[in-house]
Structures are given as structure tokens and as C-alpha cells.
Nucleic acid binder design. Structure first.
Lengths: 229, 229
DNA sequence: CATAGTTTCATACAACTGTTTGAAATGCAA
DNA sequence: TTGCATTTCAAACAGTTGTATGAAACTATG
């Protein structure tokens, strides 16, 4: 029964550093310094720097996708098998937005790491990320059931724009704050989710929307076995 | 009268490489190899790698902002001093979208470089980028004149979402193509602009929109004097 | 306690980074 | 041409990167 202390410390420190400063200028020495472990520990526990990044990304991808799908299934159950478009989009953008902009620090690092990963595409992540398409396809399918009269193209663009607004808000929310001189409040996560969902629904239907949604805790790391994504 | 051949070759090669592969993994040796010049030429002509990046960014920022403002002014002139919201948003997202997704390669590299710069914030660029806020403020002002009954907060969020959809489409359009199995056509630039503008206008008004817009050539490099941005 | 397996540690290594150097090449005016 | 400033070039520099090594420290079972 290994204590896993070193392993976990490395994962946690790496995630936080990558989330804060991006992949480009975070070195292994930065990570081991923040984790207060020896330099060789990374290669001992993970094999290489790339494998560390990959493990981080796979773990968080699984967690995020699971969270999204749980919300989607809950919405579909509540709607008797057919969720309304509002709750589908809420399940799509809610977990990430709450994670990145919410008050909880640990969640924040996890979600902001995923945003970094979605931007600064490093080789170990690029290889894994193609599978996210399959995950999004489930949401496209739910949207198709919810809006059967809309064309496929419209649905895909709506999905795309919803993610665009959510991600850009996380990635560049600081600019919005500066531009609006504080008027736009990034701490009002629920309000932001409402905004993104409302606009997305309008983009998809040309009408309006409403509703609410719950929160969820962040998962610990755990040791990856043969999980894929 | 210096021939500027080496200088220009470096700028052009660097821009293309940064646009394609990001700042992280493009080395000076990659650049000079692509430009077919000597390694020391970069430091001789630009002083340092960071100054090369900064010059590239300043040049392109000036060009993009000029192009946007020209379209904005044209729209305001056409509207008798008060442009309609549709054409304002079109002036905001049009130049970048046309530049990044259009067929012209040179434009493409220039615009995609700017997208990279807006994401992978490297130190030399970060220092300059704060001034972009002032540029966006001009669009916020025009929007305020166009929609005087809307609250400030709504205007800023609308501006933010418009840029979000445009940038994400450029940055991650490939995912949309894969997801939709080719249904969403990234080559139809005008259609994309229409889409982004339409959704943005709906977000701002809850109604609908229409209109069209012209194109413009990319500017050459030239030697920066005391230009700021 | 003794021993085998795991984990930590200081240190070294080779590769690559941006930058510098001083000499060679080039362009151009007198 | 000669002379001078600008530009190019090959080579080397010092610093940093990810990784590897082998000994030491630790853990737990017999």
C-alpha cells in the first residue's frame, strides 16, 4: 500500500502551475519545487514529463465528461427521456464554468487546467483530445431529440457557439472586467451560465429561455488503470 | 537604402511559423532556417527574440485595428453618424474572420498569428496587449450610441460574446468540422460572419438582423518608427 | 534482527535554447 | 581603385531543459 504522497503532490502542483502559467514556461524543476519533492521523482513515478501531462489530462477529462453526462442524464430523466434544450446546454457549459470561475480553489485549478489544455495544444494532449468529439456527439444527439425541427447544421453551430462563449469567458474574462470597468461580474457564475445558455438557446431557436441547476464536488486523482476517456 | 530582404524574410517566416505552431515550440533556429538566413541575423536586426515577437505583434495590431476602425467609420458615415448594431459588430469580427478563414495565405498567417497572440500570452505581447482595451472601447461607445436603451452590462457582454464566437471559430474550427462531419463549412466566411453577427445581435436585442460588407488587402511590414498602437 | 523491495536523493549528462563574437563578405561613396 | 560602414556568417558561449544513474534511506515481511 504505497502512500502516494509524492505522486499526488506532483500531480497537484503540476496542475496548478500549468493552469496558472500555461505549459510553455513551467519546467519540471518548477513543479518539483512547488511539490517539495526530488527532481527525479517525476520520471520515477510517471516515466516522463509528457506522460505526467497526459495522465493529468486524462484524469480531468474523465471527471469533466462524467459530470456533464450526469447532468445531461438527470435532465433527460426529469423530462421523461427528452430534455429541453435549456438544460442540455446547461449540462454542457455549467460544469466547466462553475469549475473555472467558482470560489473553490481546487476545482478552479482543475477546470483552468482543462482550459489551458484546450488552447495550448501540446503533443501528449493532442493525441487524446480527438476523443472529445465522441463526447460532444452525445450532446448533439440530445439536442437533436430536443429540437427535432432544427437542421443539423444549426445544432452544431449552436453547440459550437455555446462552448465558445463559455471558454472565452473563462480564458479572457479579465479583459471583459477591465473593459467594463468592473460592471461585468465574473464572480456571479450562475448569472454567467444563464447568460451563455440564454444566448445559445436564442441562437438555436430565435426565442427565449429560463431555469436553474445544482453544483458538484471535484474528484481526487486516483491511480489510472486502463481507462481511456 | 537598405534592401530589408533579410529583415522581411525573418518577419514573414516567424509570423507563419508562430501562426502554425504557436510560440512555445518555434525556436530561433526554426525561423532562420525557414527564412534561409543566418542565425545571428535575428539578433542583429531585432535585438532579441522578444523584440522580434513584439514588432510582429505591434505591426499586426495596428493593421487589424485600423481595418476595424475603417469599417466602423464607414458604417457610421453610412448611417449618418449613428451606425446600426449589425454593421458595428460586422466591423468588429469581420476583418479577423476574413483574415483567418479566407483563402488568401498571407492574410491568413497574419490573422492567425494574432489569434495565437491572443491566446498564448508571451511576456513581450502581454505588455502591449493591455492597450487593446482602448480600441475595444471605441466599439463599445458605438454600440452605446446604436442601442441607447440597453444597459452597459448588456452591451459589454454582447461585445464579449461576439469576439468569443469569432475567435473560437478560428481557433477550434477544426473540431466543429469533425463534429459535424463536414456539414459546417469553414470556407463560407461570409456565412460565418453572418452567423456570428446574427447571434450577437440577438444576444443584444432579442430580435433579428441583416446586411453585408466589403474586403481589404493585407498591409506589408514596413519599419516601425515610434508607433504605439 | 536481517533482508528484499520500494522510494528518495544528489549529481551528472547530453541536448537544446537565445545570445555573442570577431572575422569575412558586401555595398557604396570618393 | 581605395576606404568605410553595413551586413552576413560560422563558431562558440553560458544557461536551462528533460532524463538517467547509482547510492542512500526507508518500509515491511520473514
Amino acid at each position: 500500500m504505497p502512500s502516494d504522497h509524492t505522486r499526488t503532490a506532483i500531480l497537484s502542483a503540476a496542475e496548478r502551475l500549468y493552469a496558472d502559467r500555461g505549459f510553455a514556461d513551467v519546467t519540471l524543476r518548477d513543479i518539483v519545487a512547488a511539490a517539495d519533492v526530488n527532481l527525479a521523482a517525476v520520471n520515477y513515478h510517471f516515466g516522463s514529463k509528457d506522460e505526467l501531462i497526459a495522465e493529468l489530462f486524462v484524469t480531468r477529462s474523465l471527471a469533466t465528461n462524467r459530470e456533464r453526462l450526469n447532468e445531461l442524464k438527470a435532465a433527460e430523466a426529469a423530462g421523461g427521456g427528452r430534455a429541453n434544450i435549456d438544460s442540455i446546454l446547461r449540462a454542457l457549459v455549467g460544469p466547466t464554468l462553475r469549475g473555472c470561475l467558482g470560489p473553490d480553489r481546487e476545482r478552479s485549478a482543475a477546470a483552468r487546467f482543462m482550459i489551458r489544455a484546450s488552447i495550448e495544444s501540446v503533443p501528449p494532449i493532442r493525441r487524446i483530445k480527438n476523443r472529445e468529439i465522441d463526447h460532444l456527439r452525445k450532446f448533439a444527439a440530445a439536442m437533436r431529440r430536443s429540437l427535432p425541427d432544427r437542421s443539423e447544421v444549426e445544432l452544431y453551430w449552436g453547440l459550437h457557439f455555446a462552448l465558445a462563449m463559455a471558454h472565452q469567458t473563462i480564458r479572457d474574462g479579465e479583459r471583459l472586467t477591465k473593459l467594463s470597468e468592473g460592471l461585468c461580474d465574473l464572480n456571479d457564475v450562475q448569472g454567467i451560465i444563464d447568460r451563455v445558455v440564454t444566448v445559445s438557446v436564442m441562437a438555436l431557436t430565435g426565442g427565449e429561455a429560463q431555469s436553474k441547476s445544482p453544483a458538484r464536488p471535484v474528484a481526487p486523482y486516483g491511480r489510472l488503470t486502463r481507462q481511456d476517456l
